[in-house]
């Protein structure tokens, strides 16, 4: 009997939760705010679903209800992707070590 592909996806999911658990515990508390902004950015990889939805309309009817929701979701996710990564970068650039010459 064949295994349902869902089970494989579930395995990936469960194992990723454990990876997330150990990786996030090792994040230094002083970087918890960048952690939140970067998780924001990466969870916007949901844009792949939005792109599929946006491109699903056929050529004579690009804008049907489904693809319009797709297009809107593309914009929302893009705000997050660009905003999230850039603001994280801006924050991380500020974390500096003590200058030794003082």
């Amino acid at each position: 009997m064949e295994i349902d592909p869902f089970i494989f996806r579930l395995s990936i999911f469960i194992l990723s939760i454990f990876i997330g658990y150990y990786v996030v515990w090792s994040v230094t508390p002083s970087l918890h705010t960048p952690l939140m902004s970067v998780t924001n950015a990466i969870s916007s990889v949901i844009i792949v679903g939005a792109i599929i939805a946006g491109l699903a309309g056929n050529s004579d009817n690009i804008f049907n209800t489904s693809s319009i929701f797709g297009f809107l979701a593309i914009s929302l996710a893009a705000i997050n992707i660009f905003g999230g990564f850039l603001v994280t970068q801006r924050m991380l650039a500020m974390y500096k070590k003590k200058k030794k010459d003082k």
């Binding site: 705010t33 902004s37 924001n40 949901i46 939005a50 939805a53 491109l55 797709g70 996710a77 603001v87």
Partner: peptide, 30 residues
């Protein structure tokens, strides 16, 4: 920053809703 992060969360949430709606309306595409 706290407001910004809260705002960004709301966008992820809404994007998820929109993709779910698209998938429901046009399941063939997926």
């Amino acid at each position: 920053m706290p407001e910004l992060v809260a705002g960004f969360h709301s966008l992820v949430g809404l994007a998820a809703v929109f993709v779910a709606i698209s998938a429901f309306l046009n399941p063939e595409a997926f």
